[in-house]
């Protein structure tokens, strides 16, 4: 397809998320804070990209831009070939908090996107009882929550809630999945287990994933590309492909080449001198 050569999307035919010279500034005048320095980033369709960086560097800002929750102060954001402006593009999203609605059962929580997103929306009332329920239950079974659909969020542990949160992000089979430190509040064993589940879910449907995390091992385990950000105002200082064979295992993260990668990445975050930052904010 060479039809749209002049548009920014024309250059990236298979791009799912494109940030073009995007910057975000909170507030205005003298109190303005630059949260994200001019950044360009392209996620190709089906890619799994992890964003890693020191806290406050703007990783979550990038995620919010892609979700359409935050307008860009400068530059453009394209998701699925369309510019994100006021309204989001029906992406799946999961946060560090599971943010389940306490008045709905786990199944109804997971089915929430089907109530909002077309074309599912149209059939919500009629299909809710059978088709959508089965869909939710199948997804629950896939993350190891078989039979928990009728429970309420307060009856589930943190790790279970996070699994349910993944289900909710995926039920409408979005082409783009945005994850903001989804495992940040979990203990290490639960976290590692969920890495495996997330990897399986990704291998199954191959959505484009943008994962924000501050766990290097998590980034290296899950992602096919790791982007390292500088401290605030953040910009991407390193874009590293991770080619380890899939499916990856937790044991694999203790191998030498894996550890070597993590050490390289760590060095980039902790020893990011001013000479590597390039042009400062205007």
């Amino acid at each position: 397809m060479n039809t749209a050569q002049n548009t920014p999307m024309g250059r990236f035919d298979d791009a799912a998320i494109v940030l073009e010279d995007t910057a975000v500034t909170y507030g205005r005048g003298e109190t303005a804070t630059r949260a994200l320095d001019t950044t360009s980033l392209v996620l190709r369709d089906g890619e799994f990209v992890a964003l890693v960086g020191p806290s406050g560097c703007g990783k979550s800002t990038i995620l919010k831009l892609a979700a359409g929750l935050l307008p860009a102060s400068e530059g453009y954001v394209f998701v699925g070939g369309r510019e994100i402006s006021a309204r989001a593009a029906r992406v799946g999203i999961a946060f560090q908090n599971a943010t389940m609605l306490p008045w709905l059962s786990v199944r109804d929580n997971i089915m929430l996107p089907l109530k909002i997103v077309s074309p599912f929306k149209a059939g919500y009332r009629s299909k809710k009882a059978t088709e959508y329920r089965e869909r939710a239950d199948a997804l629950l079974a896939q993350v190891g929550l078989d039979g928990f659909g009728d429970k309420y969020p307060w009856q589930l542990s943190g790790g279970m809630l996070q699994r349910a949160s993944l289900c909710r992000a995926l039920i409408h089979e979005p082409r783009v999945l945005l994850l903001d430190e989804p495992f940040g509040a979990l203990d290490q064993f639960t976290r590692e287990e969920l890495w495996g589940i997330l990897q399986d879910l990704w291998l199954d449907k191959k959505p484009t994933v943008l994962l924000v995390t501050h766990d290097l091992r998590e980034a290296a385990y899950l992602a096919s590309r790791v982007c390292i950000m500088s401290p605030r105002p953040g910009r991407i200082v390193e874009d590293r492909a991770v080619d380890f064979q899939r499916p990856r295992t937790v044991a694999r993260t203790y191998d030498n080449d894996f550890i070597k990668l993590m050490q390289d990445l760590r060095a980039l975050i902790t020893h990011d001198g001013p000479n590597t930052v390039g042009s400062a904010a205007s």
Binding site: A67, G68, I93, T99, V117
Partner: peptide, 17 residues
């Protein structure tokens, strides 16, 4: 909760929804 709202906003939900 703003996060609960964000989940719906990201799905393209209207103010009414």
């Amino acid at each position: 909760s703003p996060e609960q709202q964000d989940v719906l906003k990201a799905l393209g939900a209207s103010r009414r929804e």
